[in-house]
Each structure stands twice: as structure tokens, then as C-alpha cells.
Nucleic acid binder design. Structure first.
Lengths: 211, 211
DNA sequence: GCTATCCGATAGTTACACTATCCGTTATGC
DNA sequence: GCATAACGGATAGTGTAACTATCGGATAGC
């Protein structure tokens, strides 16, 4: 199909499709002439993935490009794809200036307590440390007391995450599952947390007893 | 103290402080003359909160302003503060065009199964529906099979969230706890998920067996 | 009294994600 | 066979967000 049809089918504005092509989010169509190219079903699918990562997952374009490259790179082991996807969501905010400090120590203690095996450069390590430091300086350090509960929940989530991979046979599908599960999974978990929060709040403070 | 001292103490660039004052993220100092104002310890504290919401929580400025207003509004019941904080993080991406569809139905079924009591306009309801629809159209609808596990984790998280409130006596502290816990809590949970994912991945596919 | 600093207002900057236009070329309907 | 609509690629422009810089008039403090 031609680019205008791709536009019709996907609902994505044509200038945006051209933009994604320029940025490498979408592979170029097969050239049939100097000014003609042919797009297939895989382009429709890829476009869906791109829009999901951008709109639902909230990734910036440059980051989406990196995770898509990771999916497409057949040489990259799945564990690395996980790493790329994880880096993708922890967009820089995290890495900066968290080199030492009480937060990092608390995180490392937690990792030890739970017997987790993680590498020192896991972005979650710095992200969690950053949050703990911020909570402490804001006078809400007591929230850290509930770290074991949060960690317990994180384990449950991670087990489900890995279990979803069992539904695929080939690497390409699994890699896409990893990326989609990691990126959209974050949004899903946030959403479920909103629902569970309201429910728990209602349970503790039934209507009419609002303070 | 004067604005330049506030800048020194907080480490926030002076032009940024002026910007936050303009945008209402920071209350104006007490005017002592036509071109002089006095800032106190509460300004230092508020500035920390603002930076934490923006940098660690990743909120846009306009949204941070809304949640800070919610904290300061003594008339607003705590349950409403929860609502404002929840809306804050689900920034628009979620509300649009999720009026009906299979995803919403699946979410409502899940809410029923777990016996949750939530209002129809909880942003998490639309956010989760949006993710489920996206997963389905991407051919990863099987991830929805693990919804109960994710919901279980969300319950654990929400229980911890509400438990943190027990450490405060007055409304202002609790309101800030709600906002900080909701906004920074999301970042914390994401980070712990990264760690747990790597650990679970290592458990399932020990080093040397990477495919 | 002189200089550094202040406040408030306005204008400029950077980054991002598009969106629009232009140009030469090619498909397509009559 | 030819007019015209659509195409691909390049370049330029737009809108928003979050700062950042400058300016003008007033004041603090030595």
C-alpha cells in the first residue's frame, strides 16, 4: 500500500508518519520508483506499537526509537532488551547525581534482605534511592518503613511480567512483549494503584466519615 | 531572608525561583518595601517540595501547581486531595476517547471480582482500560490474563499507602503525605519493579543460559 | 552618595513533537 | 497521450513547556 493508505488505515496523520520515518521509528517502505514506496501489514503493526509507546506509555520519540531498535536487533539477548526497556522509562531524571547517600544505602539493604540478585547499574536502584532521599528531605522519611511491602508488591508484579513471556515462541515476539509489558505495564500498574487506593480509602474512611 | 539567600540555601537558580513565584508554585514573600520581600523557612520547604514533584515525580509545572493548591486548601477533605493527586499523575493522556470498549469492560469486571468500591470517574479506570485496549490491538492481549496478579500487587501497595498516613496528626501534614506518597510513590514503585524484574529474570534464566 | 542588589515585567532561549510547504517526479483517469 | 492528482524527500515553520536573560526603577548598606 502507499503512504496515504497507511495513513487511512492507521488513523495517524500523514505528516506524522513522515516524521516517524525520518526519525527511524518506522522502517522505510519498499521503493518501487524514485517517488513511490510500498508499505505492508508490518508497517501498520509497527505504527500501532509506536503510537502505543508514545501516547499510552508516554515515551519521548528518541526513547521509543531506542527500544524499537532493541526489538529489531536479533543479536541482542532478551535480558538486554529488558535493560533497554528499563532504561527507556527511567528517562535521565534518575541517573543524575545519585552517586552515594543514605537512599542508595537503604536500597542496597533492601536488595540484600530480599535476596535479590541485581546489577549495580540497574536504573531502578538509582531511581529508588532518589525517591528515598527526596522523601527524607521533605520530612516524609517514615514512608521508607513500608519499603518491604512495596518490595513484596514489586516481586508479585515482576513474577507476572516474566510469566507473560511464556506465551511466545520466537525471539521477536518475546522482545516486543518485553518492551510493551515494561512500558505499558508501568501505566497499567499506576492505574490499578489509583483504583486500589480509592477502594482502600473507602474501606478505611467510609462515606459520611470524611474528615 | 531575601530571595538571593533562598536561592543559595535551596540550590535552585534564582530565575527559576522567580518563575515559580510567577506560576504560583511558591507563595510570595512578605513584602517589606516596594522592592524587597522576606522569605522564611516554609519557603525553603515548599521549594524542596516543588523540585521533588517536578524532578523526581516528573510532574509538569501546571499540574504541580494544582496539587500544591490542594494541599494548601484547608477546606478540601483528604479524600479529595487523593483525587487531585491521582488526576495529577494521569496527565490527560488517559481521559481522552476512552468512553467505551472491551478494555473498560475488563476493568469493571476486575473491580467487581475483587470487590473494590471505586467511583466511575476514577482516572485509573480509564488508564487501565486504555492500556488493555492498546495491548489487545498490539496482539499482546494475553497479558490481561495476569490482571489478578497485578491487582493483588496494587492492593498491597494501596494498603501501604494508606498506612503511611497514620504517622501524622494534622491535616496539612497528611495532605502533603498524600500528594508526596502518590506522586513520588509511583516513581518508587516503578524503580522497585525494575529491580524485581532483573532479579526474577536472573532467577529464571541464570547467567550463561541467556538465549 | 554610591554601588550592589532587589522586585516585577517582558522578552528571549532551548527542546520537543509535530505540521506545512515546496520541488521535481510519477501514477492514473479520461 | 496528457493533464492532474498524489508521491517522496527536504526544509522550514508552529505551538507548547520550562526555563533564562535583560531591563527599569527602587532600595539597602556601607
Amino acid at each position: 500500500m502507499r503512504i496515504s493508505e497507511l495513513c487511512d488505515v492507521s488513523g495517524v496523520p500523514l505528516p506524522s508518519i513522515k516524521y516517524y520515518l525520518r526519525e527511524g521509528l518506522l522502517p522505510p517502505g519498499e521503493r518501487t520508483a524514485a517517488n513511490q514506496a510500498d508499505y505492508g501489514q508490518q508497517h501498520v503493526q509497527r505504527l500501532k506499537l509506536v503510537r502505543a509507546l508514545l501516547e499510552v506509555g508516554g515515551l519521548p520519540v528518541a526513547t521509543a526509537q531506542r527500544v524499537i531498535q532493541a526489538i529489531d536487533d536479533d543479536e541482542l539477548p532478551l535480558t538486554y532488551v529488558f535493560g533497554v526497556a528499563q532504561y527507556a522509562i527511567s528517562d535521565g531524571r534518575v541517573f543524575d547525581e545519585v552517586e552515594s547517600g543514605a537512599g542508595l544505602e537503604t536500597v542496597d539493604d533492601l536488595v540484600d534482605e530480599r535476596g535479590w540478585t541485581v546489577s549495580a547499574d540497574n536504573p531502578g536502584r538509582f531511581g529508588a534511592a532518589r525517591v528515598l532521599d527526596a522523601l527524607d528531605s521533605l520530612g516524609h522519611g517514615h514512608i521508607a518503613e513500608y519499603l518491604p511491602q512495596y518490595a513484596e508488591a514489586a516481586e508479585t508484579i515482576a513474577r507476572a511480567d516474566l510469566a507473560t513471556l511464556g506465551h511466545h515462541d520466537d525471539r521477536a515476539d518475546m522482545a516486543e512483549n518485553v518492551v510493551v509489558g515494561t512500558v505499558l505495564g508501568d501505566t497499567l500498574i499506576q492505574s490499578l494503584r489509583r483504583l486500589a487506593q480509592e477502594n482502600e480509602s473507602n474501606r478505611r474512611y467510609p462515606v459520611g466519615e470524611n474528615q
